[in-house]
Design a binder for these strands. Structure first.
Length: 658
DNA sequence: ATTAGGG
DNA sequence: CCCTAAT
């Protein structure tokens, strides 16, 4: 088994680029090209799950790649089917027990609630229904299984249980959960201080490599733990077994409930073999990023290369660089000395606190912890009804990415109480055998101002038609529906307020992620968690003003409204067709989402539209009168350009001949 | 950073 | 809208 660290397969930075792009039929090759990089929401979740993924390495044959993939699919399915309507408040969640056998992991996964809040709109019934996902402030690791096992120096290894992340996205009607489930077992010496525990847990997430004592699968030569009869008859054991059964994991499990450290407590460094699927995903991202980086690096070697670097649109370039940066794995090696325990994945596992092993010194107890699942906080997303599914997916992706990107720290809750003192030993913290370990939970908290206010920003990319910079409130923009065909340009539409909008307007918008936003630049800025007044859930709303919402994401299509077209035509009539920057300044100066390139493109389409028969035109009809003006202006200015060119040529010819 | 064009 | 070449 392998514990994979998210950074290893490319931090979110890489994922980001992988963001699904809205397929565009018109994109032809390009779309095909991009497909490889697209990530489905599930991929996203998988990624999250993968963060803590304990990869199941099939010892035998080939790289258990397929096995992993299968497991992935299977789990996804099962999670999906789960019902998780009961969403305890965060606090209670934290206090929730990770009851091993009793349904543990699968039984209570309810993470992201997707609530639908419908807004009535004034528009032709096409008003947006705002969907919201609420996210709890903390990522909670629930359903964790802990077992306090004393190390037994019997030379037993750890049974490798393949584990993989399970995640599912349940729609409101179904289970409403979105979670990443992983099983991680951590064995810590009881005397290790809690800091070590935190580190251990962190390492699961942050290190590509498993902590020092991660056991590899059985194939790797780690001896299986042999249960003694007592263990087998232990109620805990049964519970565990049942749990395993429920999970429908067909990964080979050693059935070892009590992994034991090998005689010398040696740590195993399992090979780094991750889920091939995820690995591939990231590999492509990395290649991409690498390519860009190379481009940049080589830019000073030649003009051509220089162009290459130069060509990358600035924003993207920035993003890509950031991505590359983030790709660099940050490795934190857990020193064996600090963690004598073994991270194991014995399927049977254990939520057991075993008695003292006669063979072991009292100081040698290890606490075996198994984290069955990391829960993704509830997400709150507000998005217009007429937003595309693709944009919804991207939004979810962004949210999750933001969460991960913002940096997480692990919290340990015992009986619902957070253990603050990292210096305490597990024993002192009462995380040891003989203690009630049923109420221990791990949480994943945002590094940045977890308690800070919440902000709401709407990524530029989240723009909606009709919403432009002229609008006073950013949120308004978000509410703007962006239907492609109807563009009833009704300023009133923009003013609709959504229930959640209020919060977003409170400027104090710091998001948990804000502090890290600069570093994560584009991607994390897209979405900011917002505290929900009533619940502790975080509301994550797209922010309108952020410069570059999501890296690599295609902008949302925002058809030009009639007024916009009128303004464009008028400006072009005045300035001509070769001065797009001026046109922009004249007519769209305060409209951030319309670049001069956009205006140029729009003009191009207008000219085309005007030149085809009305029957062939699509989208919101443009008054013929306007189209006539377009043609007239086009003809006029193209003629002007011709004259200019010829004039120049004449001048040149003259000068040369003279 | 802009402009111009192809996709 | 995106992407790029060329300014």
């Amino acid at each position: 088994m392998v514990v994979r660290k998210r950074l290893d397969y490319g931090s979110r930075g890489h994922q980001v680029p992988a963001m699904p792009r809205v397929p565009s039929s018109a994109r032809g090759k390009r779309s095909a090209r991009r497909k490889k990089d697209e990530m489905t929401p599930f991929d996203l979740l998988a990624t999250v799950a993968g963060t803590l993924l304990v990869d199941h390495e099939n010892s035998s044959n080939a790289p258990g790649i397929n096995a992993a993939a299968l497991t992935y699919a299977r789990k996804r399915k099962s999670v999906k089917a789960e019902l998780c309507d009961d969403v305890p408040p965060l606090k209670s969640v934290a206090v929730e027990n990770c009851i091993v056998g009793s349904g543990g992991v699968c039984a209570s996964p309810r993470q992201a609630n997707i609530c639908l809040a419908e807004n009535s709109s004034t528009r032709n019934g096409t008003d947006p229904v705002l969907e919201s996902l609420t996210v709890k402030p903390n990522m909670l690791v629930r359903d964790s299984l802990f077992s306090c096992t004393k190390s037994c120096n019997r030379g037993h290894g750890v049974g490798g249980i393949p584990e993989c992340g399970a995640y599912g996205v349940c729609l409101p009607g179904t289970s409403r959960s979105l979670e990443a489930t992983n099983q991680v077992q951590v064995q810590q010496p009881v005397d290790g201080d809690t800091t070590a525990l935190y580190s251990l847990v962190s390492s699961l997430d942050l290190d590509g490599r498993p902590p020092a004592l991660v056991s590899s699968d059985s194939s790797s030569g780690v001896p299986l733990c042999i249960h003694d009869k007592d263990h087998k008859t232990s109620p805990l054991f049964h519970a565990e077994a049942r749990h395993a059964a429920d999970r429908d994991d067909d990964e080979n499990s050693s059935g070892c409930t009590h992994p034991c450290t090998t005689g010398n407590n040696k740590s195993y460094m399992p090979q780094y073999t991750g889920d091939s699927r995820i690995r591939k995903m990231f590999a492509s991202k990395i290649r991409k990023a690498a390519r860009n980086k190379m481009c940049g690096e080589m830019s000073n070697k030649g003009s051509k290369l220089n162009l290459c670097a130069k060509k990358i649109s600035t924003s993207r370039q920035r993003v890509q660089r950031a991505m590359f940066k983030r790709q660099k794995p940050v490795r934190r090696h857990f020193t064996p000395s600090s963690a004598k325990g073994i991270l194991s994945e014995a399927s049977g596992a254990s939520f057991s606190v075993e008695g003292q092993n006669p063979l072991c010194g009292s100081e040698d107890y290890n606490v075996k912890l198994r984290i069955k699942s990391f829960t993704i906080p509830e997400l709150f997303i507000e998005i217009p009804e007429n937003a595309t599914v693709g944009s919804l997916k991207r939004t979810v992706m962004e949210v999750v990415t933001s969460i991960i990107e913002s940096g997480l720290r692990v919290g340990v809750l015992l009986q619902g109480k957070s253990i603050q003192d990292d210096g305490k030993t597990l024993r002192q913290a009462r995380i040891c055998h003989g203690e009630n370990l049923e109420n221990i939970d791990f949480t994943l908290e945002c590094e940045a101002g977890q308690n800070s206010s919440h902000g709401v920003r709407i990524p530029e990319e989240m723009d909606f038609p009709g919403a432009d910079a002229m609008e006073p409130l950013a949120m308004v923009k978000c509410e703007e529906p962006f239907s492609e065909t109807k563009a009833g340009y009704n300023s009133q539409q923009r003013v609709q307020a959504s229930p959640n909008r209020v919060q977003s307007e409170h400027g104090s918008v710091h998001s948990l992620f804000e502090t890290t936003a600069h570093e994560a630049s584009a991607s994390s800025q897209a979405i900011v968690p917002v505290a929900s007044p009533s619940s502790e859930a975080l509301a994550i709303v797209p922010v309108c003003k952020s410069k570059r919402p999501v890296i690599g994401q295609r902008r949302i299509r925002r058809p030009f409204s009639l007024p916009e077209v009128e303004a464009l035509v008028e400006a072009v009539e005045q300035l001509g067709t070769g001065r797009w920057r001026d046109v922009k300044m004249l007519a769209f100066d305060n409209t951030d989402h319309r670049t001069y390139v956009d205006l140029k493109d729009k003009w191009k389409t207008l000219v085309h539209t005007a030149s085809i028969s009305p029957q062939q035109r699509r989208g919101e009809p443009v008054p013929q009168g306007l189209l006539d003006r377009v043609l007239a202006a086009q003809a006029y200015w193209s003629q002007q350009q011709q004259q200019q060119i010829s004039g120049k040529a004449a001048l040149q010819g003259c000068s040369s001949s003279c």
